[in-house]
Design a protein around this nucleic acid. Structure first.
Lengths: 214, 214, 214, 214
DNA sequence: TATGAATGAGAATTCATTCAT
DNA sequence: AATGAATGAATTCTCATTCAT
C-alpha cells in the first residue's frame, strides 16, 4: 500500500539494502556500489533520491521495520489471548528471519553511534502516529490485554513494553545462539517464554487490582 | 592484577579504545590514528603488538568485559539473596557507565557481522575457564540460587541465563531511553525488574520441584 | 592500430610509466602517485582499470615491448641481408633508447623475483600468437635467413636465437657503458658485432650442410 | 683470507643477504628485519657498520662477486686452452648456482636505477686493482689467450670482453629458461657456446695478424 | 532523469632508522 | 658495542560523491 508511494528507484534501493542485510552483510561496511549494483540502478541515480549513504540505509531499515511490524500486527489480530499472540510473534521470528532481524537489528543499530544510527533515531523521532514500530505494536498488544481492567499510566506501559520486549530479545538471543552453549528444544523454549510473559502480565494486573482496592 | 601482565603499550591501547568507546565513538568507524593519538603512542607502535585494527578493538572489548565482569562478580558476593544481587547489578550499571556499556556493547558487537565481531567471537570461544564473561557470571549467580534444591540441566540453565540477561537488557534499554516515551522513576524501575526476576526464578524452582514429585 | 583499442586512461597510464621508465626511474620503486601524476589523471582512476600497481607496470612494459618489436620488425623488412638487419637493429637501439630499453629491460625485469616480474612472465606466457616479442622477432629473422637451406630443429633455433640475442646484449652493454673502461668507436663496434653475427650464422649453415652431406 | 678483515657482524650481514638472495628473494624488496633476522644480530646493530640499507646490500653483492670471481679465476688456471676455460666457467655456473647468480645478478642489479644499483656502481668504480670482478677475470683470460701474438688495444680488449660476457649471459639465459621454448641438451649447448667463443677469438687473432702484415 | 567515469580525501599498514638502555 | 622498542613518513588502495553527457 504505502509502498506505492515510494518512487520505483527508492523502492529498489530499499529492497536491495534489506536483501544485502539479510544476506548477513554488515551495514557499517556496506558500499554504495553494492547497493546500486544489487538494486540494478546507476550509482549516480541514488543521489537523486537520497543525499547520502546514511539516508539510504536508515531509510531502508525504517521502511522494512514499519512494514514488518504492520504486517505482524495485522496477523496478531487472529489470536485470542496473550499467549497466542506472543507465540505468534515468536513463530513469525522463526519463519521469517526478517522479523527477527527487524526487531533485533533495529535495536542493534539504534544502539551504536554510527551515522546510520543517528539518522534512524531521527526518523523514528519524527515518524507519523500511524507508523507502527516495534514498541508501538507491543504497546497495542498490551493495552488490548489490560484494557478492560482500567487505564494504564504511561510509566506502567513503558515498563510492560520493555518486559515483553525483553522476552522477545531472549528468544532472538536463543535463535542467534549467543549463549554459545546447550540449547533447549525450540518448542519448549517458546512455551517457556510465552508462559512467563503471560505470568508477568497477569502479575501486573493483580498488582494493579491490589493498588485499586487499597 | 592481570593488568600488570599487559605490556604498557597494549594497556595504553586498550584504555584508549575503551575511553573512546565511552565517549560514544562508533567502534566500526574508529581509526587507528584516533586510537594511537588517544593512547599517546606512535601509529606504527601498535602494529608491534597487534596484527591489525580488529585485533586491537576486539582485544580491548574482551579485556574490559572480563575485567568488568570479574569485579562485579566479586562485588556480588556481599549480597545475600537474588533480589540484592540483581539490584547490585543494575546499580552498578548506573554508577559505572562502563558496566552498562560492557554488558550491552558486548552483546551488541557480537551481533553484527563486522570483522571486529568475528574476532571477538573467536576470543570468547577460546577463552580460559577462569575468564569470567557476562553469561558465566549470570550462570554462577543462578547456580548459587538454585543449587540446594537440586541439579540443573544444561538446557534449563541456558534458559535461565537468557531470562536474567533479558531483564538486564531491559534495564539498559531503559537507561538508553530507547523506549522513546515516558520513563518510570529509576528506583521504581529497578524494583520492578528485580522483583520480576526473582519471581521468574522462584517460579522455575516450583516447577522443578513439581517435576521431581511426580 | 591496437592502441586505439586501449581506453584513453589506460593509454595515458602506459605512456606515463614508459616515460618515467625512460627518465631512468627504477620500476621497483615507482609509486602510484608518480604514475597518475605523470599521466595527468586522478589517483583513484587507475584502479578503475587495473587491480593493482603490478598490473599497471607489467602491462605498460608488455605493451611497449610488443609495440616496439612490431615496429622494428616491420622496419627490418626493408633490409636485404642479415648484416643489414642486424645493423638496423643496433642503429634503432641507438636512435630510440626505447628499443634498447625494451630488449634489455624486458630481460632485466623478467629476471628478478619481484611481483612485477611474475605478472609480466604471466602475460608473456599467455600472449597471442600474433603478438611479437623480442625472441619471436629474432626467430623470424633467423628463419628467413636460413629458410631456403632446409628446416631448423627447435633446439637449433633456440640456440641461434640466443646467439643473436647475446650480440644485441653485447651492444646494449656497450651503450650502457657497463664495462666501465675504454669504448671502441660506435661505428666500429657496430660493424664488429654485425660481422660476427653473420659469421656465426654462416658457420651454423655450413655445419648444417655438413650434417646433411654425411 | 680477506674475509678475516671483515668484522664478524659485517660478515654475518653479508652472508645473510647472499643467502636470502640465493633463496630467490627480490633484493629490491628485502627488509632490514629480514637481513638482521637471518644474520642473527640486532636490528640496530647493522647501523653501527653501515649507514643505510643500500650500503648493506650493495656491499654484500660486491663482496660475494669479488670472492666468487677470485675463486673461479684460480680454478681456471688448471685449464690449458680457451675452450677448457670457457667450459669451466659454464660448468661452474651449473654447479654453483651462486656463480650464475653472481655474474648474472651483478649485471642485473647494475642495470636498474635503484639506490642499490647506484651504490654498487660506485663501489665498482672505486675498487682496488687487485679486486677481481667479472670483467677483470674475463680480461685476464683473454689477455692470456692472445698475449703471445702481440699487444691488445684497450678498445679491442673491451670488445672481446663484451663478446665473451655475452656468451656467458647466453648460457645463463638458457639456464633461466628465458627463451620459454625448446631447450637443447645442456652439454650440446655448452659445447656450441664454447666452440663459438673460441671461433670468435680465433677470428679476432687472424684479423689482428692481417692488420699487422699490411 | 539516469548514468557511470573520474576523483581525491582518507584509511590501514609497512619499514628504515633512531636512541635510550 | 649491541639491542630492539618506538616512530612517523610514505605507500597502496577504497569509496562516497560529483558532474558532464
Amino acid at each position: 500500500m504505502e509502498n506505492t508511494q515510494l518512487a520505483p528507484k527508492v523502492k529498489a534501493t530499499y529492497q536491495a539494502i534489506v536483501q544485502l542485510f539479510r544476506e548477513g552483510i554488515d551495514l557499517n561496511n556496506l558500499t554504495v556500489s553494492e547497493i546500486t549494483g544489487k538494486a540494478g540502478i546507476g550509482k549516480g541515480t541514488v543521489y537523486e533520491y537520497f543525499s547520502n549513504k546514511e539516508e539510504m540505509i536508515a531509510g531502508a531499515i525504517f521502511y522494512e521495520l514499519k512494514d514488518s511490524c504492520q504486517s505482524l500486527y495485522d496477523h496478531l489480530k487472529q489470536e485470542k489471548d496473550l499467549y497466542g499472540k506472543m507465540n505468534a510473534i515468536l513463530l513469525s521470528m522463526e519463519e521469517r528471519l526478517s522479523h527477527t532481524s527487524c526487531f533485533f537489528r533495529a535495536i542493534h543499530i539504534m544502539m551504536d553511534n554510527s551515522a546510520i544510527s543517528s539518522k534512524l533515531k531521527e526518523m523514528v523521532k519524527s515518524k507519523g502516529e500511524d507508523e507502527l514500530l516495534v514498541m508501538d505494536m507491543l504497546g497495542r498488544v498490551i493495552e488490548e490485554e489490560i484494557a478492560f481492567e482500567g487505564e494504564l499510566t504511561k510509566e506502567d506501559k513503558a515498563y510492560l513494553e520493555m518486559t515483553v520486549l525483553s522476552k522477545i530479545i531472549c528468544y532472538a538471543m536463543y535463535q542467534f545462539n549467543l549463549n554459545n552453549g546447550a540449547k533447549p528444544e525450540r518448542k519448549a523454549m517458546r512455551e517457556m517464554i510465552c508462559r512467563s510473559t503471560c505470568r508477568e502480565i497477569e502479575n501486573f494486573k493483580v498488582m494493579l487490582a491490589g493498588d485499586v482496592e487499597e
